[in-house]
């Protein structure tokens, strides 16, 4: 996995979440098996299982006995809401901190954002 310093199961979990948000993994469709995930990402199967179990606990995935893991209906909406909640902490706070360090006011930052997004 790309980031050597963060737990792999979290990184794998995020990848799966992003694939669900982008629609690559559609709701009610099967995700790759633990062994396939482990082989593809070159990680220990126990780690892959941990990532998947975490998503099951959060209701993003569900288990069909004997068949495999599936994306829950409503998972995409739930994930988008979750990511919206954490957006401020993950992206705005560092932005403001860096801006403060180099003497940019909040207004100036907002202006820059508006200019950029056009």
């Amino acid at each position: 996995m790309e980031d050597a310093n963060r737990p792999i199961f979290l990184q794998l979990g995020e990848r799966l979440e992003n694939e669900i948000i982008s629609g690559q993994l559609a709701e009610d469709s099967a995700i790759p098996s633990i062994n396939e995930l482990a082989a593809f990402y070159r990680i220990n199967p126990a780690t892959a299982l941990k990532a998947v179990n975490l998503l099951v606990e959060n209701g993003i995935l569900y288990k069909k006995r004997g068949i495999g893991m599936f994306v829950a209906v409503g998972a995409r909406k739930q994930l988008i809401e979750m990511h919206q909640k954490t957006f401020a902490g993950e992206f705005i706070d560092p932005l403001l901190a860096e801006g403060k360090k180099i003497g940019l006011s909040v207004v100036e930052i907002i202006q820059m954002i508006e200019k950029r997004s056009n």
Partner: peptide, 13 residues
């Protein structure tokens, strides 16, 4: 080696 080890380990823990 890593790939074969992982794939086979997954099938035959």
């Amino acid at each position: 080696f890593y790939d074969r080890l992982l794939a086979d380990y997954a099938e035959n823990p």
